[in-house]
Design a protein around this nucleic acid. Structure first.
Lengths: 198, 198, 198, 198
DNA sequence: ACTTAAGCGAGACGGTACGTCTCGTCTTGTT
DNA sequence: AACAAGACGAGACGTACCGTCTCGCTTAAGT
């Protein structure tokens, strides 16, 4: 019978050293060449200590990512009443994050795991994506109530329409990801592609 | 100097066997567990034969994917004059493809490599994405000339607005990818999020 | 720097399994076809465990040979006072050993490595040949003191004269190696080739 | 049915280039690292050309060795009437050959093959060793008839007694192989180890 | 002189083993 | 009991050669 480790005895300094080492090493060698052994060495930790607490490189990295990104996460999207301005602000910040090398590396790594591993994808959805989606939806619902978004618009679709293009351009490197592009996306999404009726 | 192999001496039957084996085995064990050795065994081929012609698993898989997907690639997007209907048709087909298990597996694998390897991403852009983008842009330009898309709309942004949400939902498995969703995206993208003026 | 493994952590059961497997497999397929992989498989051991402790097949085999031969090694040559009889006894035993298939295979293999690799030859000299030579020299010196060997005879040459022919016939398979031949060698070496003075 | 190659069509320049390359490369990298591919490259020859005419590296090398050594081979051993002097002359020359780096390398390589491969050993016996043995025996027989060797001495044993020690010391590198040593061996073998009767 | 059937250089091919790397498990002290 | 250290069985990595197999090209007979 496998005796599960007792979390109360866990040494938190060790845990943090491992998470930090994971992020550090991803920056140095990239996710593909990141090995458990390398993380252990860099953290000054035995391999077993890693295997005791995480089932896989992906799971470890996911925690490391949360540790990195989750801290500064805003509790809510700004709501000044000007939807377009608020979205441009938020997406501009997102663009900046994605252009930051450390975060770019880490998020690409995370994405790799999520794309191939449905279990991690579910975990990701629960712990990161859904909460974020709720914040986004809250802001859009507020706009909808203020009459700035059509009543018949599905907010899920609205979110995808605004954030999807940015994430896509980032992932596929179709073209450089700039704040200008983000603003164009916001404007076009809000207004639609059709010619303006007069 | 490393003498590159002479392509004229290449045995094409062997090449096709390798590409086929690569796709087969990705379906059986997934991309993460796909090894060159396994592909070689499955193709009845020596490992060196693979290493002679491809520099990495990613590069091999990219060729295999092109072999799989590229053949049936349409030469142009339909243009019946009804932009919404045409887009729904095309995106519906895309949705079906992404729900086909073999293609889903292969495209996810490809995506993994592209996300982490800028060189492959560039290759992907040149050989697959850009040509497809041109076809899409051509259809949208035709619509623009017909007055169905605003003259001030940037067609690059338009493409991202239509295709981005679908690809994103597929990659991140936010929710099941259905034809209905695709239709909603088309309609919302065309019409915009703003309430209709009256 | 390459950190040498810590010998105190070594698992001795594993070490013995490897040495045994090496001897076994040499008997089955011969030294030329003996591979590290085969030894590992036969010993139920990972390849790395072999490479961790031995730098080459030759070095491993050398240890395996010592393990095989060294155990029964006599501490001293018999000294009954009758030099010829003692030598015939010892050489007869040597002949039997060389005609034993397992030892024959192993010693030929060892010889192969020694002939081509001076480093191993030096190791062989230190750990096997020199100790044996000392025993031989001790016996001959005793005979010399007893007046059974000329005082001006160089004992190194004497050893070569007695053992050289036997080893040579064995190595080169000039003719079958028999006890009779060994006895003839002893007698002729002692008496010399010249006709007897009267 | 495998059509054996027609020796009359053989290109002798190619044959010689291969043999030369074999000797050259053994000198450069040693026999263990000598590969057919390397010989082929060095000789400017296709691999198939080698495989067409020789069944193995050993067989090829054997021919190469004959080509190298066989040419200058004396037809008979000197017979001045002074057996000791003649033997010292011959063995001195042998010692010099064994101390020549090129020949040393080549003969060690040959020896390696012979020790492990009985078929090659037989070939070696037929084509090199037996003829040489006959020459040696002829010289000793002549000495025996001249009363310089006891009538009851087995000449095969005599040959082993004289040449065995030298070959052994060379193969096992027990100690440096010098002309002085050869002379000592000759004298001791002729006179025997027993003290001189008076 | 003209076919034609080798020999030949070149090197792709299916394999096997190399020696290295990392995996995830297990064992041995240390704290 | 968690931990650092690291040996261990397992097996993939990418490389080097094996011996076989075309592929064109010379190059000598034999008609």
């Amino acid at each position: 019978m496998s005796t599960a480790p007792d979390p109360t005895r866990r040494n938190d300094a060790v845990r943090r050293a491992i998470l930090t080492a994971a992020i550090d090493q991803v920056g140095e060698v990239g996710y593909a060449k990141l090995t458990i052994e390398r993380i252990a060495k860099s953290a000054g930790v035995g391999k077993q200590t890693i295997y005791r607490w995480w089932p896989s490189k992906g799971a470890l990295f996911f925690d490391a990512f949360l540790d990195l990104a989750g801290d500064g996460e805003a509790a809510a999207l700004p709501d000044t009443g000007d939807l377009a301005a608020d979205l441009k602000l938020v997406l501009g910040a997102t663009v900046d994050e994605l252009n930051d090398d450390r975060l770019d590396q880490a998020m690409r790594a995370l994405n790799t795991e999520i794309v191939l591993d449905p279990a991690l994808a579910a975990d990701y959805a629960t712990r990161l994506d859904n909460p974020m989606r709720e914040l986004k939806k809250a802001r859009l619902r507020s706009a909808q109530q203020a009459g700035q978004i059509g009543e018949d618009v599905d907010l899920e679709v609205a979110i995808d329409l605004i954030w999807g293009p940015i994430l896509n351009r980032w992932l596929q490197r179709t073209a450089p990801l700039t704040r200008e592009y983000a603003e164009q996306v916001v404007e076009t999404a809000l207004r639609g592609l059709l010619p303006r009726e007069r």
